[in-house]
Amino acid sequence: MTETLTDDLKYIVFQLKEKEYAIPVNKVHSIEKIEHITRVPGVSSYIKGVLNLRGVVTPIIDLRLRFDIEEVAYTDSTRIIIVSFDDMEVGLIVDTANDVIDIKAEAIEPQPEVVGVDEAEYINGVAKLDKRLLILLDLEKILQRDDLKTTYGNEG
């Protein structure tokens, strides 16, 4: 209700290697603990495989690998954020999912020049909140598959 009045939007905040990222809460379906993931052959390494999410087979992306950050072993705090975008439902593996916060529209700065790392191309903007720097992710770009290779397929 309130967000229609102001330009505040609720965001889910999560961490990847000391940095904090945010996705709009309305794109987030649920947050799950890590479970058995079935590997899918012949896709990019950042697609870890598929997971049974209450009967729905859901693809899982390891965001660390997507952003070319080194992989770490999953811990108790590792979470899978299930996001839906454009008819797609995908899980994102993150180090931890901390909390939900409001970000005012004016706190968002569009061009993240300072960030200058590999994930730059997936970023929508950055938000400064007190002393925290939140990186707002562009789901559309994250979910773009650049791996549609046809390694074996030469069949019609």
């Binding site: 058995h36 079935t38 012949g42 729905v56 087979v57 693809p59 979910l143």
Partner: peptide
């Protein structure tokens, strides 16, 4: 799902008795 289309030689998935895919 709509995200993983065109996986070579995989036509789909199923969920086994132990909950795994």
């Amino acid at each position: 799902g709509n995200y993983l289309t065109n996986v070579f030689a995989i036509s789909g998935a199923t969920i086994l008795g132990d909950g795994q895919v």
